[in-house]
Amino acid sequence: MSDKTPKDQEQKAAESEVKEFKKDLGPFVIAGETTRMPMVFTDAREADDPIIFANDAFLELTGYERDEVLAKDLTFLLAPGTAKDALPDLDSEPGETNDIHFCHKDGSDFWADVFVHPVKDEEGTVVQHFMSLVDTTRHKTALRNAATLIDELNHRVKNTLATVQSIVTQAVRNSSDPEIVRESIEMRIAALSRSHDLLGREKYDGAGLHDLLGEALAPFSVTEGRAERFTVEGKKIRMTPKATLALGIAFNELATNAVKYGAFSNETGTIAISWTMNEEPDGRWLCLHWREKDGPKVTPPTRKGFGSRVLEQGLAHELNGKVKLNYAPDGIICTIHVPAPQAMLDG
């Protein structure tokens, strides 16, 4: 006990008792004072069981100075809203209560299991209570984080299943040829999977736009030296997880179309992808262009396919922006214009 300013007679008496302890039980008292387990002795002969001894670990746990806790009963530490009977019943024999919600001096919360043992004199009268606390805050926080993660994982799994369901539904709606249905399902699930790979590597904290494009276009560029036939130009920008998934699907649709009908369907076509960040009256926007050139001459489709719907409606809604697909004769130009919250600078 480093503090030598006892507040009143009562405390003085209590301290002298502790001194007696010290004499009788030397090493045990030192253990009590220095152990990392927070502990206090209270005076059972007083009505409120005031604290007469608090070790350093207790002071560290609660943030109080010794003279701020002495002569008080443990209830002063309870967090607002925690009932006094959350503490173990002092009148019963050894007792414990778990996960009691306390309040640190700095106002932060902590949780602890509290164990109580009566200390009796030679006549068997309870003269003190010995209380020890086990800080369960970290354990509790870890449990809560795990629960949140499981919830979030479940949410993502369900959303992914719903997306796969939509991919299947769309494929069946758009063709009755089983080969085409199979191909479009496999191709889109693979694209979704690549986006999840990318997000997984980034701990689901979004992804850089360059990485996103690299991942989305990888399967289309490995063959026939196409890698040299597309260029990507733009400052490093980080996209949100939601935008990463949506753009992954969108770029996959564009690239698939390019391979089937566009700039990648012949030997000479090129695709140039570029973007800028623009300050506009209603905030900062990302403006991305996908420009195809030197492919076969483009003729606008007579009927809007799934790909163009994904881009012009799906992507535009998902990212609260505008997406325009221009079937220019020289090559398709897709303009993606989305507000900056979907993209964070300096990624």
Binding site: T163, S166, Q170, R173, R188, V310, Q313, G314, H317
Partner: peptide, 10 residues
């Protein structure tokens, strides 16, 4: 995004 489109179709 695809889910939304599927619901629109439904």
């Amino acid at each position: 995004m695809l889910v939304l489109m599927a619901i629109e179709d439904m």
